[in-house]
Amino acid sequence: MVDSDKFRFRFLPAPEGLSPFIDSLYTFETDVSEIDDILPAYSAQLIVYARGQATMEMPGGGTGRSSEAYFLTPLLEAAPFHLSGPVRAAGVSLTARGWAALSGMPVDEYGNRTMDAAEVLEGDLADRLTAIAPALRDGEIDAEGAAGLMAEVVRDGLKPLRPQHVQMIERTFAWLNSDLNPEIADLEKELGLSARQLQRLCRRFFGRPTKGVVTRFRAIRSATILADPNLTAELRSKVTDAYYDQAHMIHEIQRYTGRTPKRLSPDEPHLGVETLGTGGYGNIDLHAVEQGGKRPIN
């Protein structure tokens, strides 16, 4: 939990049985009138705003805007945002499997945008979500209670995925966890897919071709590790060895987190940095770098 002069931010664990679909729940409150920050490339978010508003400069152009109940679809690069406070909000961070099972929308077509709840969910589910904001605003529930109700909407909205798609998503996460630079051929072999088939599925569930998936998750994992105040010299070396040189590492981390490595541990809390905490990730083991990752990928 972060409780600073600017904001209060807390990660909550996924409810029982929902960890394949939800990375975490979270609450956010601030009494500050204006906050500007950058959100790292992140999985899909379901967010309820009881107070305040948010706007975001979306990767590739356009502006995303908050509503009382909306989805921030998967972000494929870091995105600057502006909060107009005071803000009182709760959220659900969805996994790749969770977004697919809840929305059925391919990430390469629907990523990098905001969508009202009714654009993604059927009427009753969307109505339940839109009822949460006024209840939170009027004090009928607290922010943790709001997040819990949102998780139950997610539970009720999940639709079965094809078994081969579930296998692909789960094995891709295991593969990403195996190394900072896992060999793409290993995943093709394990799944029994051609390079073209794997590219298509990676675009659908992760928004990028296979190499781009590696690059994105490597940057996020590297940033989280480098921001750890208990970082060891050995672990730092494993991260830096995953890149061709320092310039390559700085460029990649900035592209996907909005910050250079030196700015990942600011003197005062920043919301964008706090979202890189390990509490926000369920299926990616951000510290699984035992292989060292010595095969750089452009």
Rank of each mutant, 00 (worst) to 15 (best):
188 E>I: 09
12 L>C: 12
255 R>N: 08
128 R>P: 04
6 K>P: 06
186 D>Y: 07
188 E>G: 10
125 L>W: 07
295 R>E: 13
4 S>I: 09
108 D>P: 06
89 A>T: 13
221 R>S: 02
241 D>E: 15
110 Y>C: 14
131 A>P: 02
271 L>R: 05
4 S>W: 10
264 L>G: 03
249 M>F: 02
174 A>P: 05
79 A>C: 05
42 Y>N: 07
111 G>Y: 10
119 E>A: 05
180 L>V: 13
42 Y>P: 00
196 R>D: 15
61 G>I: 10
186 D>H: 12
10 R>Y: 08
77 E>M: 05
185 A>Q: 13
283 N>Q: 15
92 V>K: 06
190 E>T: 11
118 A>I: 10
253 I>K: 00
246 Q>W: 02
250 I>A: 05
272 G>H: 02
8 R>K: 13
33 S>D: 10
297 I>K: 11
225 I>S: 05
55 T>D: 03
265 S>R: 12
86 P>K: 08
221 R>N: 00
106 P>C: 11
131 A>Q: 14
145 G>I: 03
236 R>M: 11
79 A>L: 03
103 S>K: 06
243 Y>D: 03
135 A>N: 13
237 S>C: 09
239 V>G: 03
148 G>S: 14
137 R>V: 13
103 S>N: 14
40 P>W: 03
290 E>G: 12
125 L>H: 14
266 P>I: 01
273 V>D: 01
205 F>P: 01
263 R>I: 00
37 D>H: 07
5 D>E: 13
205 F>G: 01
269 P>C: 11
223 A>G: 00
129 L>N: 09
14 A>L: 01
194 S>Q: 09
171 R>W: 06
71 F>Y: 04
216 R>A: 15
134 P>N: 14
67 S>C: 09
159 K>F: 06
114 T>Q: 09
26 Y>R: 10
237 S>H: 08
51 R>P: 04
114 T>I: 03
291 Q>M: 15
11 F>D: 14
62 G>D: 12
24 S>T: 15
180 L>A: 10
271 L>W: 07
54 A>P: 03
67 S>N: 06
118 A>T: 08
134 P>S: 13
138 D>K: 13
